[in-house]
Amino acid sequence: MTETRTPARAVIMDHDGSLDDLLSLLLLTRYDVDLQGVAVTPADCLLAPALSVTHRILDLADLPHVQVAPGSLSGPHPFPMAWRTDALRVEALPVLNRFPPRERTSGPVLPAHEQLVKWIEQAATPLTILVTGPLTNLAWCLDKHPWLEQAIGEIVFMGGAFDVEGNVEEPGHDGSAEWNVYCDPKAAQRVFATQIPITLFPLDVTNQVPVTDEFVRAFGAHYGNPASDLAGSLLAMTFGTVETVGSPYCCWDSLATSYLAAPELFTFDQVRCTVVVDGASEGRTVRADDGRVVRCAITVKQEDFYRHCLQLLT
């Protein structure tokens, strides 16, 4: 009897170039998924180095054919510039400069919001959209082409905060919002207004997996493995966050990404919620009886997550 293989999940990633976004992309390339494209949003990054690093990670994973689309849309609340320079340093890491960049074989691409439409149109099966930055590109697509809603099987989004403090510290804001939502609250509201299933990873669960000294140094035992060297370097570059901003760097985006390969790491609940789009709580995600239902990650098996990353990246 011939064994029938289940088709790999078709995935598009939209990230915004921070250290954890780049770790998420690296992790995603190790999964049994059909990665159909990567959009880079100029939110928590400078676009040029973030694009360069994205290409180099795909080269490292032997995926030079995967298209990378540069974002040209941005939300009304730019991320702090001090956070956006990480990709400049990552681009210079020796592990990403062992070889010249490979020739792109995928042809020209459109700006990310327009290319996202093309990717969704061309997909043979409903797509999973993994968003580890703001929802700006996806909201534009749904505004301009509402029928695309039927072609998206699931949105996996790292964003929001319900029962924990947010991470926005801006003048006039009450600190209740999470940055990926706060960057473009109306985009989040637009996406939440759809019927597309959303699996949400808010700060409530991502705060449960801080980047620990033990986790980072464990990659050292695998020195010489390019994926491990890059993962360890990205994680090591997060050190100093507590000293400078007063809170730990967490595996925000990489935790959401791990769901695609290891959903058993999580417990979930159905949460009705909405997005505040103005005032001192702008960008806050709040429970609401008349809100839309999202599948919200509640808890994670912390040590199993760390082991998952180490096994896949070493």
Rank of each mutant, 00 (worst) to 15 (best):
D14P: 02
N167K: 05
L127M: 09
G71V: 06
V131R: 00
P101K: 07
R272M: 10
T41W: 07
P210M: 11
R5S: 12
E91S: 12
L310Q: 06
F266Q: 04
V286R: 03
A261M: 05
V168Q: 04
V293T: 15
P101L: 14
L312P: 01
T41G: 07
A87H: 06
L22D: 01
D14A: 13
L203E: 03
A193D: 14
D229M: 06
L313G: 02
A161P: 04
D289Q: 09
G291M: 10
D204G: 05
A161L: 06
S72C: 15
T314C: 13
N207H: 10
P78K: 10
L138W: 04
L265F: 04
A227D: 10
C296I: 07
Y259P: 00
Q189R: 14
T194Y: 02
A48V: 12
P101S: 13
T314E: 12
P185V: 10
C250Y: 07
T194K: 02
G17Y: 02
P111Y: 06
E178T: 01
D34A: 13
P7S: 08
L127I: 05
A236P: 00
P210V: 10
D174R: 03
A43V: 07
K301G: 07
E121A: 12
V38R: 01
V156S: 02
A39P: 00
R190S: 11
W83E: 10
A288D: 13
Q311M: 13
V209Y: 03
G279Q: 08
R217A: 14
R104V: 11
W83R: 08
T299D: 14
Y306I: 09
V95C: 10
T41S: 11
L60K: 00
W179Q: 10
S72N: 14
L47A: 08
Q150Y: 08
T136S: 10
L138R: 03
A123H: 01
T257I: 03
A112C: 12
A10S: 11
A236S: 09
W252E: 10
E154K: 08
Y31A: 14
Q67L: 13
L46Q: 11
T267N: 05
K118D: 12
G232E: 05
L46T: 04
T244F: 08
E114T: 05
P80Q: 09
L203I: 05
T285W: 06
G159W: 04
A8T: 05
M13F: 07
F266N: 04
Q195V: 09
V11G: 00
T136G: 05
W252Y: 15
N207C: 08
L110K: 12
T29Q: 05
L312F: 11
L19E: 01
V276H: 02
A48N: 09
G107A: 06
P101G: 11
V109T: 14
Y223W: 14
A69G: 02
C296Y: 05
A151P: 00
H113P: 02
W119Y: 08
R89F: 12
T85R: 14
A231W: 00
L35P: 01
V66I: 11
L127W: 04
P42F: 13
L235S: 00
M237E: 02
P101N: 09
G107I: 04
A280S: 08
C250P: 00
L22T: 04
H145P: 01
G153Y: 02
P42K: 12
I298Y: 06
Q189D: 14
S18P: 02
C309E: 02
A61D: 03
S72I: 15
D143A: 08
K186P: 00
A193F: 09
